[in-house]
Amino acid sequence: MLVKQLSIFMENRAGRLAEIARLLGDAGVNIRALSLADTSDFGILRLIVNDVKRAMRILRDSGRTVSLTDVVAVEVPDHPGGLAGVLERLRDANVNVEYMYAFVEKATDNAVVIFRFEDIENALKVLQRAGISVLSAETVSSL
């Protein structure tokens, strides 16, 4: 049920993001979702891609600092209050979210939210008990 996310260390300099996007684009890697956490000096680029291994190799070869992080992709009804419902369940079960970001599925009426949890196992149990749909890595990469 876990999805592999690529995390890339980036200096906060003009054009860094474009370089990485071009690198992946030229290698035929498709970016499914992304989020950028930044401070005044550096940023952490988080990517969900269709081909993790290939993307990892390309980025490493270009000298970037890259790591893989386990994240959870949750399907959330794409209507007002949809996300709130999921988050309330997590809150009630005392599940801590390190960070999260979302994108909208093309094919269905759902949104997909990527979660990084402090305690992934526990979070998965809570989501399952609440009947919230957790997407597999295959599903996410084929979205």
């Binding site: 996310q5 260390f9 956490a37 930044d38 790591s67 990084r116």
Partner: peptide, 9 residues
Amino acid sequence: SEHLFSDEV
């Protein structure tokens, strides 16, 4: 380096 890197700010 990769040892040092964390994906959390």
